[in-house]
Amino acid sequence: MREEVIVRVGAKVLAPFIITFALYVHFHGDYSPGGGFQAGVILAAAFALLALVYGLDEVQRVLPPWFVQTCAAMGVVIYAGVGVATMLLGHNYLGYNALAPDPTHAEHGQHYGILLVELGVLVTVFGVMVSVFYLFAGRVRKAQ
């Protein structure tokens, strides 16, 4: 597939749009279908596409395996950390009302809380999907 100009250029053009779309899906998840899970998978798919077209090495130079593995762990930490932060602010674990900047409108905190935990979900799902893909693809390359 190394010689396919159309595939290479096509992938190069598509990838930034897929990544932007993933971020849109994440941040617009409150108003339309979408959220951390979908965004993480779409983001991972963008890098899987690049790896399929340009080869695993090129993508791993941009996105090294240790980075995605750290991502997978960091997402869980972000999620749990939001819970701990709300506890430190004097509310229940994951009680997002604590995050409101203005205490008279406590429900605004829900908005920030949801975005933050969804960010944790996004980071984990992205890290997991890409690192699993790396492992599988690395095996295939070694076997050949």
Partner: peptide, 20 residues
């Protein structure tokens, strides 16, 4: 189901890794 799908793909990848 939304969460189940993502957990499903994660467990599927474990199963495939075992098969490998």
């Amino acid at each position: 189901i939304l969460t189940a799908i993502v957990v499903g793909i994660a467990t599927t990848s474990v199963a495939l890794a075992l098969a490998i």
